[in-house]
Design a protein around this nucleic acid. Structure first.
Lengths: 343, 343
DNA sequence: CCCTTTAATTGAAGCGCTTCAATTAAAAAT
DNA sequence: ATTTTTAATTGAAGCGCTTCAATTAAAGGG
């Protein structure tokens, strides 16, 4: 493969000049540039990336570490996220390094994946997803002054850039809508409290109730345990609610997979969604619209989130001043046919 | 950040020795090794990856270029594939570079993404997905003697490693099953002929008919056009079939998205799936089991495919002899409740 | 105890680029 | 025509690692 040295020799200039036609074309005389460019084409020369990276001490690469539990292997969520991230990377000429770790990996090991990338200078920045309470990864990245951006907020008192979807808002809207339909007892099936997004959503549920002057009843809230199959968990969750003395006639479910289980459970119980029980699903998986009845959902702007994440991170890496690196996007309640008037 | 030079100085050995404790530990005396290791830990030294890559002239990185049309942004398929690929990468200590290109990008541009990776030596190998008829990418990669593996087969007479799911077998099984139920007129809604997988599946459909002594009727086959919204396409497709003089009472649909549209179309037409019309979906999206009725599907071992792809590619890169680099995995017919006896 | 093997370590030469001070060429000013 | 200014080019010094021939240290053999 041709090197910059070959190009220099053939076009009878120094390698410095060749480098300049590639990186600072305005610095070299037009005719020289032309000549070099021709040789480059003739030799099909492409600068070696490792060499360039070493020399510049940067890689124009960011990393995303995917939490691949069995659970989110299935989440269409991530496909949209990736689409957004890779699109911006492509536009801004950055590369994306993707690696996975299973969520049942212990925290230390997970952190070491991040550390490895950072310390071997394999990437210029990182995207962190699904922060937990007191997230070790965030602490580490702040302490070591890395470039990174988080999908989601944290409860640690450190400042860092993030993009998040306002789960609290989404949930309160869901409650408001159900309240509009006359519901007073609204069930809630949520994800593990360890994740920040779970907390925000639950908080939104409570705030929503409060806004509608509905008293919070802890008996109506079920929290699914981590490591459980989500579909099964949803099924168990809804049955628990339906077996209450005073079962709710409406339920909000915090996640697509859970909702699948919930629907299954409702049917098994002999009830019909949108008839005997109203259902809202947080996150609008594409199949929701195709169910019978179509499921009222809270749609998250995931693709946009992916774009924002990579945009902020890349700007940060490039040292561009960022006006706002705390971005809270609003989800949207998509009303379909899975909720009906109370009574 | 500490460099190998710092480590050498602090542990009073040459940088060569430090390099050896990292890469050929058996070559250095135990006590020296211990001492160096301690310094490495103390300094939190991690070899700079760019330097290592440059020196070794390899990157231990493979690339996957994702075809992100609006279409497969939604395909859960790819999430599973990625899970498999990243898992093996993790195990074998390889990195994965992910980039996307929209399918409406023209072929030349798409090829240039591949060329860029290859020629700048950014990666040691590539995974190519969804080959088309006379796929330019494959030709290029063979000609330039690159390490690569294809998800799918090709119709060009070049030898290259691939992993594929036997779409032909899957389709013929679907036909056989429907024939068992007494169906003679079986509709087929397929994806664009330009993709190899479409051809294999259609071929399997025809072969299946042949095996069952059913005559092939071109009127029962609709091919969706590329660039079309798949759900809509499915809907149009099924309506076209239902409006035939002698409409089929069973239909096989080649893809999840198409199937969503088909179900929609069937309902709009006033028919019920699994009652007025039998339906088989090729590819078993997770929601299929949750539909009412649950959809009989042909399940593809996608996760395994991802694992095989990366395993073969990495072995190839490492120069390991591969027993078999043409792997055809069998899909499986999952019988649920969307098909009923003819009549 | 000296000589031969073998083990351990060193030093320097790459790997292919970028960067920048220093040099040379060309243009503008006097 | 000479000096000053500006533009273009060069050369060499990194960037941080690996590799390997050459050297030195340790071990084994008689």
């Amino acid at each position: 493969m041709a090197t910059i040295f070959d190009v220099a020799r053939m076009s009878k200039v120094s390698i410095g000049t060749v480098s300049n036609v590639l990186n600072n074309p305005e610095k070299v005389k037009t005719e020289t540039r032309q000549r070099v460019l021709e040789v480059i084409k003739a030799l099909n020369f492409h600068p070696n990336l490792s060499a360039r990276n070493l020399s510049r001490l940067r890689t124009d690469t960011i990393a995303l570490i995917f939490p691949f539990s069995k659970r989110n292997r299935m989440e269409p969520y991530y496909t949209y996220l990736l689409a957004g991230i890779t699109e911006i990377c492509f536009q801004m000429n950055f590369k994306l390094l993707l690696s996975s770790c299973t969520t049942n990996i212990n925290e230390k090991e997970e952190l070491s994946i991040y550390a490895e990338y950072v310390e071997s200078q394999a990437v210029d920045g990182l995207i962190v997803t699904t922060p937990k309470s007191c997230d070790e990864r965030i602490k580490f990245l702040v302490e070591t002054k890395q470039n990174f951006v988080v999908l989601g907020r944290s409860n640690i008192s450190l400042d860092f850039p993030w993009v998040d979807i306002d789960g609290s808002y989404g949930m309160s809207e869901a409650v408001r809508y159900l309240s509009t339909l006359g519901h007073k007892r609204i069930g809630y099936i949520g994800t593990p409290n360890i994740f920040m997004f779970s907390r925000h959503r639950l908080e939104g549920y409570e705030r929503g109730l409060n806004n509608c002057n509905i008293e919070f009843d802890p008996e109506l809230v079920v929290e699914v345990s981590i490591n459980e199959d989500e579909v099964e968990a949803g099924e168990k969750g809804i049955l628990q609610l339906l077996r209450l003395n005073l079962p709710p006639k409406a339920v909000i479910v915090s996640g697509n997979q859970l909702a699948l289980g919930v629907i299954k459970g409702i049917n098994k119980f002999g009830y019909a969604v949108g008839k005997d029980i109203s259902l809202i699903c947080f996150d609008d998986a594409e199949w929701n619209v195709h169910f019978n009845p179509p499921i009222t959902s809270i749609r998250q702007p995931i693709y946009e989130t992916g774009k924002m994440l990579s945009k902020i991170l890349i700007q940060q890496i490039k040292g561009v001043k960022i006006k706002d690196s705390h971005i809270l996007l609003k989800p949207e309640l998509i009303i379909r046919e899975s909720c009906k008037k109370y009574g």
